[in-house]
Amino acid sequence: MIQLYNVTKIYPSGVKALTDVTLRVHKGEFVFLVGPSGAGKSTITKLIYREEFPTRGQVIFNGKNVIRMRQREVPYLRRAMGMVFQDFRLLPQKTVFENVAFAMEVVGSSGRDIKKTVPKVLNMVGLTKKADVFPGHLSGGEQQRVSVARAIVNNPVLIIADEPTGNLDPETSWDLMNLFLNINKRGTTVIMITHARDIVDAMKKRVVEMAGGQIVRDEKEGTYRYEA
């Protein structure tokens, strides 16, 4: 589903983030991207949702060349993906319900669809009771659940999670991980950047380890391992 061919990325500042990286991710996979800071993990995800262009190489998503895509097609590329970030990125002046509904409004869903779908998704992430609360009144774990709900509400084929548990305590992290596992079981591909060693070790999923802008290890049912 995702193919990166010989991708090199040099930022305008001169920093070489990726060197000749080739990576394939198949539909339905659950992939951990691990490695020290600055290894190029985030750059890979940014190339997939076309926040950045590669300096050299090709990026293919669902059979489409992401690099050659026209600017006005980019929103539709992103609608096929759900993004979850370490800092949640919720809209503080909107309630939980409205934050999730907003993702549907953006893609032009009808009011009836929104009223039907959002409660289902909130139920799935266990936030039915908090629907009318503002993000500021939620714990970190709850806020991250809202952003997961927002990421999946439009039924994306891919979830990109950039350190989703980075700001959460271990127990909350596990709850969230189970949520991602459930989403993955429904057939959604998940690419997750993480530093949570015990979670990676316990889940036995594919692990891609990066260092210095290159892939140094790619294992099915891998472990975290990297020494920092």
């Binding site: 929103p75 953006v106 893609v107 927002r150 439009n154």
Partner: peptide, 16 residues
């Protein structure tokens, strides 16, 4: 600008 960033990764078109 934060909101705009959020709208963009959700897949809002430029016109939206």
């Amino acid at each position: 600008r934060k909101e705009i960033g959020i709208m963009k990764f959700i897949g809002a078109t430029n016109w939206f």
